[in-house]
Amino acid sequence: MLEVKGLRKVYSSGGREVEALRDLTFTVDNGDLVCLVGPSGCGKTTLLRCVSGLLMPTSGEVRVGGRPITGPPPGMAVVFQEYGRSLFPWMNVRDNVELPLKQKKVDRSRRRQLVDTALDAVGLSGAASAYPWQLSGGMQQRVAIARAVAYEPETLLMDEPFAAVDAQTRADLEDLVRSLWQRLEVTVLFVTHDIDEAVYLGRRVVMLSSSPTVVQDELVVDLPAERDQLRTRADPRFVELRTRVYEQIQLAKRAAAG
């Protein structure tokens, strides 16, 4: 279980203080898929960096499986928004996926198997020896997802992973994430600014306010587990849910402006 309790982060630079996160509390149950959605500039990335242990919060804490996080925890994989910068351009696709496994001291044959399975799962078996920059944006993000999957994480954090890919690729990648989540039984925390994406993907949606950020509202997405880009998005219940999320976000924005 992933628990975020009273999380607060204040950046200070040159005597000026900026409160990015004010007071965030939410939990993600094991095996759940939770989408965090909020207006742009609401500190989503700061939150994710705190959860992944890359950034120490000013106060409050993040616990994974009951243990507080002080640095990047072992069973956690992160997919960054900036795929072009997160994949190492000096390594080919296979080496990129394999490097974290080498660090985990996974033995050679198991490594090979994990990399092959992961690349196969994202549909990139043929591109193992290509360099990331030889691939399209969507394919690069698939490599990043394969790297996360091969790592065999218990928790998968995704930071607006599809913000920079085109709409059609995005739909494919969303379905990929859903199917991987169902198959691998990982806990997924998915950060996005796209309301439709949050409702389509998530089993729960946590809405954030504008900065300084608090949890605005939460809802359970009671859509059938089998989702489909055409039918799910046309489902009246889907429309209802996204309207609710939309209203909350607008409310949050207005509160911030007023």
């Binding site: 960096r49 992944s52 242990g53 890359l54 640095g71 990047p72 072992p74 956690m76 994989a77 992160v78 960054f80 900036e82 910068r85 997160s86 190492f88 490097l99 974290p100 080498k102 660090q103 985990k104 790297r147 790592y151």
Partner: peptide
């Protein structure tokens, strides 16, 4: 900085 974050998040530390 994203490269460094990635390395840290995936436990690529020390000599590697």
């Amino acid at each position: 900085s994203v490269v460094l974050d990635t390395a840290r998040a995936y436990g690529v530390t020390g000599p590697a």
